[in-house]
Design a protein around this nucleic acid. Sequence first.
DNA 1: GAGGAGGATGGCACCGTTGTCATCGCCGCC
DNA 2: GGCGGCGATGACAACGGTGCCATCCTCCTC
Lengths: 349, 349
Amino acid sequence: MAGPDRKPTIIDVARLAGASIKTVSRVINKERYVSPDMQERIEKAVAELGYQPNMMARSLASERSNLIGHLYGDAGGPYTLEIQVGLLNRCRAHGYHLMIEEIDYRSDQVEKRASAIVNQMRLDGVVLTAPVTDNPIVLRILEDAGVPYVRVTPQQESETSPSVRIDERQAAYTLTQHLLALGHRRIGFIKGKANHTATILRYTGYCDALVDAGVAVDPVLVEQGEFTYASAVACARRLLDQPHRPTAIFASNDEMAAAVVAEAHNRGFSLPANLSVVGFDDTPLAEMMWPPLTTVRQPVREMAETAADILIGLLSQRGKVDWPKPVPHQVLAHTVLLRQSTARPPGKG
Amino acid sequence: MAGPDRKPTIIDVARLAGASIKTVSRVINKERYVSPDMQERIEKAVAELGYQPNMMARSLASERSNLIGHLYGDAGGPYTLEIQVGLLNRCRAHGYHLMIEEIDYRSDQVEKRASAIVNQMRLDGVVLTAPVTDNPIVLRILEDAGVPYVRVTPQQESETSPSVRIDERQAAYTLTQHLLALGHRRIGFIKGKANHTATILRYTGYCDALVDAGVAVDPVLVEQGEFTYASAVACARRLLDQPHRPTAIFASNDEMAAAVVAEAHNRGFSLPANLSVVGFDDTPLAEMMWPPLTTVRQPVREMAETAADILIGLLSQRGKVDWPKPVPHQVLAHTVLLRQSTARPPGKG
DNA sequence: GAGGAGGATGGCACCGTTGTCATCGCCGCC
DNA sequence: GGCGGCGATGACAACGGTGCCATCCTCCTC
């Protein structure tokens, strides 16, 4: 193969197939009004030359980049990755490409950076995950640029953009009920980072379940964590140091639950006999720690796929009105995973 | 602000600044030969209009896309994510954007897909991670397209592309030495997935350390795992079921180490008193499990950053020869993390 | 048989930049 | 004073496609 010295262009294809470039363009884009005969000739030429349309040129001419952006704030462990896998699945299926960008949402450069990303790359659409989902600057830039976006687990549902989430309050509620059903009454709680939606919703679910079961929420049993292992170690210590200590602890995420488990191990507790622990998120960790952690799984990948579907669905009907009103707000089902970190409280076996 | 109805272009800037578009282009690209006065006028105009150059047009005209691709095979947990974070760091710093693409390396579509990614998007450069690092089809496509690429932890170093890695054999060697130094002589080993480079290197390090210490490699103590938790559970069972069982187990990654720990807990072992366990990789898991795992950390993020640096370094001097020969092959330093999952063997305390 | 509808195709401007080359003015030097 | 050199600037043609509109042909209808 004395290959051509440069990549073939649509012109080469047209020449080889004996057609106009416009007609080749039609075939590439699967438009109507091409005779079967012509279609075949062009496809043959494309194959023969190994022609691949140049995305850049395409985007420039058509105002469609086939690019979807994923903007996120912290590279939050497995979560972010799952999101990307989900997005990638759909992008691939629909011929989109994924561009990922981290935004330091604390920086004063947010505006500049977000704007650069959105405007320079001419993204067709954007998926937002926490904590950028609710960043007013980012949202404004997207609105201004007229770029459709979908938010995963936003704090506030908005009328201008769709969202995907699970019912975190309900999940926490159910998980707490599980502990109550086992016979626990003194249930410690470690909150997540202050002001995060997740923190509030999970805590609310916990409180509601207690109250509905006729158990008072004892402030002594509630600690303020930060979603990190380190933060939860301190919380666990304080909780377990209490004279009348809890028989179960609900940590607002798995990482913090791991800290509780470690601290309990340190004290020579046998789990779950001496202490029940539950987490939230079902990170890979949950299954691999010992004892395996009772927790709640968010279908993160599926959420991302749903977000992508919504976005791509809209993009495919571009030219119509912006979003259908009301915009979709999907709530996906979570799963409570009962594993071996929970049992009846001591003395009630 | 009765904003303009469409995004400002370089023409608008030129008009406002009273310059030619070419001169504006010069300023945008920080080229030489622009008078300070002119420079200032243009910068002012840019700021006033909020002008952002259109990447698509830029790429089309210049044959440079400012896009770096990350091709990977499996969304392998924290590893992939760390890689991305590292790449992103550098991309951001140098004005590149990151496009991530998963390639199903088992599929018969590899060729089509890889080719589409590379050729359609006109990527400036590519970073490859396992197991795509050594996929001959992908490599050929990159070579053919003349797209520079850097491989992270390839099986074979090549003369045509740089690579970044750590010395895995040495790391495994050191880790094994640590166990030997503690007094262990019967050290079990759980291998990773067959044919993976990592599997071979880690195993070699283990064997070498034993032999150098005058301890024979006992095949009874070597199990074949697959880098997964599930696969290692079975291995751990077989190892611990032996009458003359090992006093320490070296699992080829943390996930498998977690399985060993869980199995040991199940049997009521007290760790590390009854059994020492070491892993490999220092995933987040390692620190959060109980007892915290002695393991080896690959500076994954740094490896990615190095890869990006190498790539970007080359791209910035485009027009010169391809790679400097010999191409760089960086070996970064690993860290052995001694935590609490290892201790002297029973009876030697 | 004229008129009209609609399928099939092509021509050409345009998308927003950069690359190449020409031009111009000014300075220093012989 | 003429000339070479270089800094500064602009004109114009790409880059590789798509959008819009014109054209041509065929077939159907009245």
